[in-house]
Write a protein that binds this DNA or RNA. Sequence first.
DNA 1: TCTTGGGTTCGAGAATCATCGAACTATCGG
DNA 2: CCGATAGTTCGATGATTCTCGAACCCAAGA
Lengths: 101, 101
Amino acid sequence: MPGELPHPDRSEIQLTDVLFALSDPERLAIARQLADGPLDMAACHATDPNLPKSTKSHFMKVLREAGVIRNEANGRRRMLTLRRDDLDARFPGLLESVLRA
Amino acid sequence: MPGELPHPDRSEIQLTDVLFALSDPERLAIARQLADGPLDMAACHATDPNLPKSTKSHFMKVLREAGVIRNEANGRRRMLTLRRDDLDARFPGLLESVLRA
DNA sequence: TCTTGGGTTCGAGAATCATCGAACTATCGG
DNA sequence: CCGATAGTTCGATGATTCTCGAACCCAAGA
């Protein structure tokens, strides 16, 4: 498990990538669950609980590469965070309207 | 050219479909151009001007089926409209933040 | 009515994306 | 060390989606 996964810098976040990442119901559900605060990946069961872990990991990858979430190693766990500040700075109001909808 | 193409009712518009439709740069550009008001399809060159018409028509189909735009027959032309009212009612603030970004 | 201009639909091939098992990696507890 | 736990990566298969030519459709002139 590589400690450091690549994350786009705030300035590199593309609107279309964000929209695409959130255009899937499961990924959207993950983002919504993270709206309440950071979460251990193991504790994140926004999706089907008996989902294969490779699939779940892939969801996180899409969200991470789009700049929607941060996925950082924390011991043997993974801490997931919604990149609210970065998204708000780059696309004001977008995240709020998506999460609220 | 069938006069009436199917459009989803306001209540049927799905957030994920809207996000997906706007997650493509060309489709996003079309939506942005329509933000200034309705447009004849022939006058809409938000995209590459020598784009095959079938491709352009396909973009419009995705946007229409998602509920982002309206595509209505008007004589031998096509009138394109951004469904701002419907989108605002269903997902307040979303469209504005996407168009402004 | 015949032709033209503007768009849709169909069909096929290419490209992208999703899903999941299997192998791998890294960390912690014993 | 050893095993178990938590997650990533790889590879393959299947499902969507994109792209575009060709055929078709319809309204409006000539």
